[in-house]
């Protein structure tokens, strides 16, 4: 029934201790109840969000997903500017973060002297422990001025022809937000990549070495292909984190409610929308629309996280770092 092992049965010896089954049963009941509560919690989140966005779903229907206007004045709300903001900042962040994270993983597993591997890994884990509000704060006061005064003007003068860098470089824009997000997401991707690369059997590496491969060729031919699905899993995990980030982004993205037209445009993500507008004196329709956006975000990040866990779990078979 409940426990896989037999409970102590009364023996026929002189001193028979009657062990009541009730404490065990109560405990089991408690445990089951808690389990049910956890599942109920997950369901409740979806239910509450759906319930509260019901009005918006009714009023805007499918148009919610391709309209681009968000206007309090006209009470017209659509999700597109925020989905674009979310996906744009997250993808850009990955574009920056993945090479950096892979580089650190490769360095730690192949180049670094053994005594240095622990400390560097620890330092990267410390990066993961820094709260996102501090990243955002640092982003606002340290990164944003640097972006506005140095990086963005240079980008505009050299790569302005691509059309990606138009508009006045104020620094509070999609690009800066992506940079901060990248910094936040690197530790996650790096830790998973490091674990999967370290799990490559020595025999594979020796096979490459014995053919006369250089260090990089060994990494390229024997290690990276072997670790590929784990690394991809780590990247998707990082994507999941980036999609849901609020505080790191909210201070530097400019909080505009339109679709960004250049990397120097201000924008918003679904997370920042919820954080800035849910509590302000918004009418019920607006609140409902905000929560419908939240529903969209939750579904996207759910999908991404499930995919990531499946990939990472399959490769490392449950061992390795626990990523909270």
């Amino acid at each position: 029934m409940e426990s896989p092992t037999p409970s102590p049965s009364s023996s026929s010896s002189a001193k028979t201790r009657r062990v009541s089954p009730w404490p065990d049963r109560i405990f089991f009941g408690l445990v089951i109840a808690v389990g049910a509560f956890v599942i109920a919690l997950a369901v409740a989140i979806v239910v509450i969000l759906v319930y509260n966005s019901e009005q918006s779903i009714r009023v805007f229907g499918w148009g919610f997903f391709y309209g681009t206007e968000w206007s309090v004045q006209y009470q017209v709300f659509n999700v597109v500017p925020f989905v674009v903001g979310t996906l744009l900042t997250s993808s850009l962040a990955l574009l920056i973060a993945v090479p950096l994270a892979l580089g650190t993983a490769i360095f730690i597993t192949t180049q670094a002297p053994r005594w240095a591997r622990g400390p560097i890994g620890t330092a990267i884990e410390l990066l993961a422990a820094v709260p996102s509000v501090i990243y955002g704060f640092w982003g606002l006061y340290v990164v944003h001025p640097y972006m506005a005064q140095t990086v963005e003007p240079k980008l505009q003068s050299t790569l302005g022809w691509t059309g990606l860098f138009s508009g006045t470089p104020v620094g509070l824009d999609v690009l800066t937000a992506s940079v901060i997000l990248a910094v936040m997401v690197v530790p996650t991707i790096s830790a998973v990549s490091r674990d999967t690369l370290a799990a490559v059997p020595a025999a594979q590496k020796e096979a490459a070495l014995s053919l006369g491969a250089t260090d990089w060729e060994t990494t390229r031919i024997a290690m990276l292909p072997y670790a590929r699905s784990g690394i991809v899993g780590g990247v998707i995990l990082g994507l999941g984190r980036a999609l849901g980030e609020t505080m790191a982004v909210i201070m530097v993205i400019g909080n505009a409610e339109k679709v960004p037209t250049s990397l120097f445009s201000s924008g918003s993500t679904i997370s920042t929308l919820i954080a800035t507008q849910l509590l302000s004196n918004s009418g019920p329709l607006q609140i409902s629309a905000i929560l419908e956006c939240g529903l969209v975000l939750m579904l996207i990040s759910l999908l991404v996280n499930v995919a990531a866990r499946l990939l990472v779990w399959r490769v490392t078979k449950g061992a390795g770092t626990v990523l909270a």
């Binding site: 997950a42 969000l49 319930y51 849901g244 975000l297 759910l302 991404v304 499930v306 866990r309």
Partner: peptide, 20 residues
């Protein structure tokens, strides 16, 4: 479920409690 819940953005948790 617990695994999946670790991936839910914290702002959504806040919105959920607020909504409740």
């Amino acid at each position: 479920t617990a695994d999946v819940l670790t991936g839910v953005p914290s702002i959504i948790m806040g919105a959920f409690v607020w909504g409740y």
